[in-house]
């Protein structure tokens, strides 16, 4: 579902740097056809920026406790 996709996307962006690896990781998941098609539209340069932003601004609940 969308919630799981969002969680996997943030986990992947926060732990990986290479756009190709990030896309491949997402495409290995059992995404719905709509989300599978969506991931295929991701441009490598923009994935790189998203990974940079999530690493910079990401804050985890588990780090609060």
């Amino acid at each position: 579902d969308i919630a799981t996709f969002q969680s996997i996307l943030l986990e992947t962006l926060s732990s990986q740097d290479e756009p190709d690896v990030i896309k491949a990781t997402l495409q290995q998941e059992a995404l719905s056809p709509a989300l599978q098609n969506y991931v295929q539209t991701f441009e490598p340069e923009m994935v790189e920026i998203a990974a940079e932003l999530v690493k910079k601004w990401g804050k985890r609940l588990s780090k609060l406790q």
């Binding site: 969308i2 919630a3 969002q6 969680s7 996997i8 996307l9 943030l10 986990e11 962006l13 926060s14 709509a34 989300l35 098609n37 969506y38 998203a50 932003l53 999530v54 910079k56 601004w57 990401g58 804050k59 985890r60 609940l61 588990s62 609060l64």
Partner: peptide, 24 residues
């Protein structure tokens, strides 16, 4: 959106327009 799973904050990101995303 910017929060999901263990992340209560990150960067604002888009989602595709589908019946499910529109409804939520």
């Amino acid at each position: 959106w910017m929060a999901a799973g263990d992340f209560y904050q990150s960067a604002p990101l888009p989602l595709p327009l589908t019946p499910e995303t529109l409804q939520l």
